[in-house]
Design a protein around this nucleic acid. Structure first.
Lengths: 133, 133
DNA sequence: TAAATCTATATGCACAGTGACTGTAGTTGA
DNA sequence: TCAACTACAGTCACTGTGCATATAGATTTA
């Protein structure tokens, strides 16, 4: 885990924070604004449940402040003005670190499941023994 | 996700909370007390970093209160008294739900990585084009 | 035997982050 | 014109965490 890139949350990054990674990934695909990102998040198959609007906007502002994304205000010919975000080189680097971190997390979940399935197996064996008695 | 089993945190279970799942899994293997669980957590390959003692004890008390584990005070012939925890049937059921949830999370991380690797590929292609010009 | 260290549990405190709610404001359609 | 939608942002209560600290018996070491 690279602390420099992901901020001051060395080891204990809440999975909520992973919304940052998801936003970076979406912005990597194409530049976008907050409202659209919320919809794209809800469609994305790497995110479950509703992404709270407040959380999305807050994280976007913070990532902007941190230089991971850059924004400029856009007054379109229709609809209210909106803030267009795009990935910066730092954001790209951060996304890379996130991907490494997520790969690690995935491995840990796999380890958990492996141990669990062994446990489940031992349970059903025990049940069979009870049935025989 | 089954709300009934994991408490009132329907969709937004912080991964920190996953310490609950880890504790349940460890207790499924063998009954244990807090101090030992902290050490076993730090050895387990499904957990990175140090498990904070306060967090472990707090979660154990809560899970006890919620009926996922049961405890009884034990005054051994050596060392200070300690609280021995063991998995209840409810805890076993909760662990099962956790395992399902974690399998889902794993799938989501895989989806994320898949999208990311595609992005990375498109990046390196773009770089090659720049090199050619 | 006194001091330090280990085992073992638990609480207080400050802080971060979230979700629900509310506010603001322009736009579109019935 | 009034509701619904787009779009962003702030307030507030709440949860959970990590760090520090308290407590206390047991064991080791100087």
């Amino acid at each position: 885990m690279n602390e420099e890139m992901l901020g001051k949350f060395e080891l204990t990054i809440p999975i909520e924070r992973s919304i940052q990674a998801e936003l970076l990934l979406l912005l990597g695909h194409k530049l976008s604004h907050g409202y659209e990102l919320i919809q794209r998040l809800n469609e994305a198959d790497f995110r479950s449940g509703e992404a709270d609007a407040a959380t999305v906007y807050r994280n976007l502002r913070r990532m902007d402040k941190d230089g991971l994304i850059s924004s400029h205000w856009e007054v379109g010919e229709s609809g209210p003005g909106r803030r267009l975000y795009e990935l910066t080189p730092q954001g790209e680097a951060s996304l890379k670190v996130w991907a490494q971190y997520i790969a690690q997390q995935k491995a840990k979940l796999e380890n958990f499941l492996q141990v669990y399935y062994l446990f489940e197996e031992s349970l059903s064996k025990r049940e069979n023994e009870v049935d025989l008695s």
